[in-house]
Design a protein around this nucleic acid. Structure first.
Lengths: 104, 104
DNA sequence: GAATCGCATAAGTGTGTGCTTATGTGTTGT
DNA sequence: ACAACACATAAGCACACACTTATGCGATTC
């Protein structure tokens, strides 16, 4: 199940850090490792999990593999969240952030 | 870390099912079990995980414990999702669902 | 006040997860 | 061609997770 993959992928703090880095600009796996104190195989495995969850996608360029955020995963989270919008009004202040930059 | 708790809690299909049930109306732990093929201790443990993630909150009523959706957890997910709104436009059609019922 | 009920907690067990080291595969540079 | 590089994969290990059975504990019922 894809929802399981997504939530499980994001449950790990290291993977959320990787995802956040990619959100600030796509880069290859080696560059991604800089300043992260993580082994090369571990990074490769984390990226595989994020890829399976459609949170990240790859683009091979020679011997490098460029990774970038895949909007599909985020859209699925938004879709899941939308099912429970009946419970949102209690925190309208936070949710206005979601609205602000969407209607242009 | 609370984000880890939230995503980890939602990674389990059984817990998502429990949460979805509660989203359709609060109820106690026994009623929640009906038609779910899950032992009483397992349900109790799942509810503890959901409670720790602030996705659910309890309200003791005599010897019953009534559970309901806690908007705090959902708000935190929305907050996390908002950080990546730069990547949303690729799926505007889905995200319009999020908008629709929010501005009244 | 004794039995029952609703729920939580404890302890044990199989399975999954995230890491490690070692090795493989394809690409680039000399 | 050969070495170095970027990355993936395999295998093993410690720990976390979801379940089980057994038990505890407060609230209700008779």
């Amino acid at each position: 199940m894809i929802e399981r993959d997504i939530f499980r992928a994001l449950a790990d703090p290291t993977r959320r850090a990787i995802f956040e880095k990619l959100a600030n600009g796509s880069m290859n796996a080696s560059t991604l490792r800089l300043g992260m104190d993580i082994s090369q195989p571990a990074m490769s495995q984390h990226l595989a999990v994020l890829r399976a969850a459609r949170l990240v996608r790859e683009q091979k360029e020679g011997r490098f593999v460029n990774y970038e955020v895949d909007p599909d995963g985020l859209a699925l989270i938004a879709q899941w969240l939308a099912k429970y919008r009946a419970y949102w009004p209690a925190r309208i202040d936070v949710l206005k952030l979601l609205l602000k930059d969407m209607d242009q």
